[in-house]
Write a protein that binds this DNA or RNA. Structure first.
Lengths: 342, 342
DNA sequence: TTTCCACACGCAAACGTTTTCGTAAGGTTT
DNA sequence: AAACCTTACGAAAACGTTTGCGTGTGGAAA
């Protein structure tokens, strides 16, 4: 089991100095053609690869982007990562992904760990717990040490940095408008508790749309779900015998669960009740009926976030000082769950 | 924007040597209590964190595990990662995730990049292209340089290393047996082309099960799909007017597509035709009807793979020499798509 | 023959740590 | 007063690179 070969070893074998080897491999004119070829042949033979760690230490940059997301088993976040990777690879950056598992502590640990040498900058969507706790010291500390941070999706208003978001409120409004436009009047919403920033924004969009259409908002048509994993019974109770003609669900899970529950209660989607979701994931696409939804364009978000970050990292001083917020357009994807039937 | 503080800076400020600072922070008895406290206070104040890069260089280990998977937007792989992270974090390892996007070249690049200093060992599931190309030099090279590799799920028989797999063939047999046991006789299979190792194994399991039940195998009931993204028309043509009472799909997508196609053709699942899938992902769980399937226990796979790798990394010489293959049990998850109706 | 200039290469510092070893100062023994 | 031992700290090497600068050798010009 041969070890990784270093410049020093090559130098010793060839009886030249380390610097000669280094320069030869870089085709420096300082070194004779003869030596250059000899060194390069030897390096190829032994499969020499410069040690990134040493390079990072020397250059004081890692050419690595750290991505921290709340959940790794989550379609939307992985699409964002896809976008980040695309841009990063183009620009010669590596991507490290860590999951906070929605835990504040793990978010802090991961960030500090990556910040202490492993990455040059960060793209991050904050954990649920962090949003609840409103403790952002780790993020601000990271930034104050000169490492740029780009927040996406679940962002924090109080932290001043680059951000990539969708207009959740507008997206929700679009969704609700769509329901209204096909003739629905009694629209229920399945949403999250308010401390989840995107949930709250989507609720607001729903309310705005209603107001714009002069539809009275009714508290009894709003369900704020805390325990996402056990939402079925909650949704079932909520929907039972309710006089409604449409449901807006702020995520895929709520949407498919609603369909399931309604089926069990003898209602047909979309004939009896229209359903619209949020996030264009696998479920929405393949479900029967396929679900009309609001696409967040996750990959685009990743692309934009990565670009913002790399701009900062390689930035001339001009770009370094200002912070930008990119708003990605959402779009309505019409599918079967909101067929116009009235 | 203050920069990251180093030992050298602390030393200068406090007018002591670098080694004194280092020792003081480690509570070495060599240093007077007085100095120790002074140094620690100062370090806390300036939020000193040792630079991981420097540590990695010095210790010649990174305490990082590299994970390379074919697709990041894929439920099964992300569950495996979940398992890896669990173990890794317990043992003080960081996890770096890279996606090969099923491209051989990107797999090579990622592996070489991580191998040149960023990770101590690897957990990897090979890209489709790699399986097709049968070029494993990058993996063997990595291992020959002393970095352990654990292969999982999409493994390579020819490469000698630790492996974590499920018994795909047995799982498929279980699935097929289940269909047979509820009275199905004419069972079609939707599978992949043979160069995908797991696809081939599952096809074999299906055939074995048929033979064990003395059911004649029929070529016209086997569909090997190459282009996964456009499988719907292919499946539709294949299933049209076919006299069958069950379908075994080797992945979730094929399974839900089959249900969809059958619905369109006026057949009901499970009443007219039973369907069983493979992989217990979001789709299977939430689909209507919910899909009976074979669970691969992805998280377990990740856990086992991580343990194998860490054993090798921290191993006494004994463990270092032998290679183990862990086979994770699959289990049948019965849901609505194979309700016993006959 | 002396002076000069390419040429081809080596030295050493630097990145931030840890750790082994050396050593000055001061106190305690004889 | 000489010898010795603690105590408390510093110097330096090492990990693997890159790079500016110094330098020895040889040949060409004067």
């Amino acid at each position: 089991m041969k070890q990784k070969v270093t410049l020093k070893q090559i130098a010793k074998e060839l009886d030249v100095s380390i610097s000669t080897v280094s320069k030869a491999l870089k085709d420096s004119v300082e070194i004779s053609l003869d030596t250059r070829q000899k060194v390069k042949a030897f390096a190829k033979l032994y499969n020499y690869k410069p040690n990134n760690i040493a390079l990072s230490l020397k250059n004081r940059k890692t050419k690595t982007i750290g991505v921290i997301i709340p959940e790794i088993v989550h379609h939307f976040f992985t699409t964002v990562i896809g976008g980040v990777e695309k841009v990063a690879n183009e620009k010669g950056y590596n991507v490290i992904i860590c999951s906070s598992n929605n835990s504040f502590d793990k978010e802090v640990i991961n960030l500090e760990m990556l910040a202490s040498g492993s990455a040059d900058g960060f793209i991050l969507s904050v954990a649920k717990e962090t949003q609840l706790k409103k403790d952002y010291h780790h993020i601000e500390e990271t930034m104050s040490q000169g490492m740029p941070v780009v927040l996406f999706d679940r962002i924090i208003d109080e932290v001043v940095c680059d951000k990539v978001i969708i207009d959740d409120s507008k997206g929700a409004q679009t969704a609700t408008n769509h329901l209204l436009s096909i003739g629905c009047k009694k629209i229920a919403i399945l949403t999250t508790v308010d401390y989840i920033s995107v949930g709250k924004l989507r609720t607001n969009g729903y309310l705005r749309a209603l107001r714009a259409y002069d539809v009275p908002e009714r508290e009894d048509l709003i369900l704020k779900i805390e325990d996402i994993d056990n939402c079925e019974s909650e949704i079932s109770d909520f929907l039972k015998n309710k006089d409604i003609d449409a449901v807006f669900a702020v995520n895929e899970l709520f949407a498919v669960t609603a369909v399931k529950v309604l089926n069990n209660q003898g209602k047909k989607v979309p004939d009896d009740i229209a359903i619209i979701g949020f996030t264009d994931g696998i479920l929405s696409k393949h479900f029967i009926p396929s679900l009309t939804t609001i696409s967040q364009h996750g990959e685009d978000m990743g692309v934009r976030a990565a670009k913002l970050l790399i701009d900062k990292l390689e930035g001339d001083e001009a770009a370094t000082e200002e912070y930008r917020t990119v708003i990605i357009d959402t779009s309505l994807i019409q599918r079967q769950s909101t067929k116009k039937t009235k």
